[in-house]
Design a protein around this nucleic acid. Structure first.
Lengths: 238, 238
DNA sequence: CCCTTTATGGTCAGGATGACTAATAGTCCT
DNA sequence: AGGACTATTAGTCATCCTGACCATAAAGGG
C-alpha cells in the first residue's frame, strides 16, 4: 500500500446493523424510521458513523446498545457481514458501510434511540423497501445467517441462556423457512458433542400445554461436524 | 443513519488482496516489498487506495491487474473477506481496509507493479511477518478459502480452464494440508451434478508418466450439496 | 520386459439421515 | 375427575454417504 502516490479522497465510514430475532415463529428485523432526507419517512437499518477512535466492531456494538436500549450488549453475537462501497449508494457523499448481523434472543422493546425517529421490530417478509441499499444488506444477512446455521452453532445466539430443543428447532425452521422432523432434529443436536448441554436441575419450562421440555444451555462447540444441512427444496441446488 | 448528528471524521479506505495460487503442490501468496516507511523493506499484501469513483470490488480488481500484470482479470475469482478497521492498524492515519481473497490458476510472473518495489510469489508457510495486520488478513483468507472449498465449487477457480481430477484434488490437499483418497474424491466430485463436466474430446494431459487423465471443465454449479468435508484432525472440533 | 507411476473402477462395512410409529407427561375443557 | 389435546421423548428401519480398501488399465523408464 503506497499511501502517498494517490491523493486519498476522504470517505465517510458507517456501520449498518441487521438486527435479527425470532419471535412468534417469525424472523424479525429491527428497523428505524428516518427523520431526514434523503429517504425521510422511509425505514432503514439502524447504524451510524464510526467514530475516530473506534473500530467498526466497536461502533456496531455501540449503535446496537443505543438502538435497542440493552445494557448488556457484550454477550450478543455480532457477525461482520460485508462492506458495501458502491460510489452512489448514498446520494449526498461517498459513504462506505461495514454491515453487521446481530442476533438477539429476546427482543427488547426498542426505544427510538438517540437519532432514530422511531424504532420497531418488523417481520422479515414485511420489511418493505428500505432506504439506500438496505434491502440488499438485510437479504445478505438473512442468507449469511441461514448458511451459518448449517455448519456452526450459531443458532443458540437466537435463544435465551436456557432453552428447550423445541425453541432451538424453531430458530432453524424460522430462519430457513422450512419444517424439520422433531425426533431427527433432536438426535442430530444431541449427537453433536458440545453443541448443547443439559441443565442438570432437570428443569422444565413452557407456558403452554404439553409435556414439559428439558432445558439446555449452549455448549462450548462453535462448529458443527458434520453440518446440519437444510433440506434442498428441489433436486439439487446446481 | 443520521449523517448530520456527528461530525464525521474522514477515513482513508484501501483494499488489501490476499492473492493465492497453488503451484508445485504448495499454496503461494503474492507479496510485495514495501519501498517506504512505515514497514519499509517489509513484505506486505498488495493493495491500494479506493478511488473516489469506484467500489472496493472495482478497486481490488484494478489493483490485482496492476500487481499481477494480467490483462484478463475479469474472469478471476474475487471474494470479499472482511473489513479491518482497528484504529491503530496504520501508524500514520486512520485507514479502513476492505480485504479480498483472489484465486489464480496459473501464477503469472509478477512484475513489480506501479508502486511496489518488488512483487513475488511466496509459499504460504514462509510468508514471514508481514507489514501492518497483513499476517492476520492472510490467515483469514486461508481459513475462508479452506472453508469455502467444503461447500462451494470454489476449487475450480484455482484450476486452468481444463484440468484433471488429480489437479483438482491437489487444490484441496494443498489448501487443507491433508491428503485425500483418490477414488473417493473422484466419486464425490463426479457424483455432484454441475461441479465438473467432462471435455468430450477425450483429451489427455500431464507432462509426466502414468496413465493420461481425462480433462474436465468447471460446471455451472456453485454450491456443493452435500458438502465435501475436510477430515477432522482429531476427534471432533468442539 | 518388468517395474513404477498415475488414473480409473469396484467392493464393503459403518455412520448419518429421512420417514415413521409409539410412549410419556403435562395442560385444558367439560 | 376424566378425557381430549399437545408437545416432548424414545425407538425402528431403509437408504444414502462416507472412508478404507483392493484391483485393473494405461502410460513411461530402466
Amino acid at each position: 500500500m503506497d499511501y502517498d502516490k494517490y491523493a486519498h479522497e476522504p470517505f465517510a465510514v458507517t456501520v449498518d446493523l441487521a438486527v435479527l430475532t425470532v419471535t412468534e415463529g417469525t424472523l424479525h428485523a429491527l428497523l428505524v424510521e428516518r427523520g431526514q432526507e434523503p429517504y425521510a419517512g422511509h425505514w432503514a437499518l439502524p447504524g451510524g458513523f464510526v467514530h475516530p477512535d473506534e473500530s467498526a466492531e466497536t461502533a456496531a456494538r455501540r449503535e446496537l446498545a443505543e438502538e435497542t436500549g440493552l445494557s448488556d450488549v457484550s454477550g450478543l453475537h455480532l457477525e461482520q457481514l460485508r462492506t458495501y462501497s458502491e460510489p452512489d449508494r448514498d446520494p449526498r457523499m461517498r459513504v462506505v458501510s461495514v454491515a453487521f448481523a446481530a442476533l438477539l434472543p429476546d427482543p427488547p422493546e426498542p426505544h427510538g434511540g438517540s437519532d432514530a425517529a422511531e424504532a420497531r421490530w418488523v417481520p422479515y417478509d414485511k420489511a418493505g423497501p428500505l432506504a439506500f441499499d438496505h434491502d440488499r444488506i438485510l437479504a445478505d444477512a438473512h442468507e449469511l445467517v441461514g448458511a451459518k446455521l448449517e455448519y456452526t452453532c450459531l443458532a443458540t445466539a437466537f435463544c435465551p441462556p436456557e432453552f428447550t430443543l423445541g425453541e432451538l428447532q424453531q430458530v432453524y425452521e424460522t430462519v430457513w423457512g422450512t419444517t424439520l422432523d422433531r425426533p431427527n432434529f433432536r438426535r442430530k443436536v444431541l449427537a453433536t458433542p458440545g453443541f448443547v448441554e443439559a441443565v442438570p436441575g432437570a428443569a422444565r419450562l413452557t407456558g403452554g400445554r404439553g409435556k414439559p421440555a428439558a432445558l439446555y444451555r449452549a455448549g462450548p462447540a462453535t462448529a458443527l461436524h458434520p453440518p446440519l444441512l437444510r433440506p434442498s427444496p428441489e433436486g439439487r441446488p446446481a
